[in-house]
Design a protein around this nucleic acid. Structure first.
Lengths: 118, 118
DNA sequence: TTCATTATATTGGATACCCAATAAAAAGAT
DNA sequence: ATCTTTTTATTGGGTATCCAATATAATGAA
């Protein structure tokens, strides 16, 4: 956990949201079961969702036809449906076009331009 | 509006969130009054926040010491406080480290790798 | 079978986000 | 002063996200 990502910002804004989108994005790359998704989300965001966060989200995605699952032993391996895959790709396009500037401008800015203001 | 950005995805996930963060990011670049912020948010996200969305968010940021404002005629020009600036930069770092992969992998992927799956 | 472990799931409570609709305030025009 | 426009603000209602705590289900081991 948190080995590739700083903690979420404390006082400024809580940065909630994007959980369902993040799940769709992860499933775009690989089928995963719940705990595996939780671990990946923890690695990517710095905080691992609790069961009370993750499973309702998965339930929502399932009942809206975005994901389905098959049991593998005690695990439920989730994967995208056809529709879920389309939706995930559309969401990625939207995300990149809406927030891409932040990545570009923040990562491409000369280091001193950012660090000087910190 | 919506002249640089597709509409938010319909069925897959609603992509709410990040409003306060987006406001902080915009104010990092330029002081702005409410309507100006609303227009910029509309351009970046494809949907312009309604007053009932924007002003409570600005009020929150103000009462938590992130932004302040001065009156200019009938407008209130918002700007970051010192603390707000620090928080905004921290939030940008977090955002990029948490979600940068999505942006990188989706934009750097060969076109056919993405379009073929659409 | 009994126990411990792993994985999934639910409940209760909280906050941020979001809109439609309405209201209020400020400035300029007539 | 009255009217219109612009800008800011509030109210009511809804969903997604989030956690702590608790519960259920499946597996494997002793």
């Amino acid at each position: 956990m948190s080995d590739c990502c700083p903690n979420p910002p404390a006082g400024c804004c809580d940065m909630r949201g994007l959980l369902s989108f993040s799940i769709l994005w992860l499933l775009l790359k690989k089928d995963m079961y719940g705990q595996e998704l939780a671990d990946e989300l923890g690695r990517m965001r710095g905080t691992k969702p609790t069961p009370g966060t993750l499973y309702p989200a998965l339930g929502e995605l399932e009942s809206s036809g975005q994901v389905e699952w098959i049991r593998k032993g005690r695990k439920k391996v989730y994967r995208l449906t056809e529709e879920g895959r389309r939706g995930a790709l559309e969401a990625c396009r939207y995300f990149c076009s809406a927030y891409g500037d932040i990545f570009r401008e923040f990562t491409e800015a000369p280091k001193d331009e950012i660090e000087a203001q910190t």
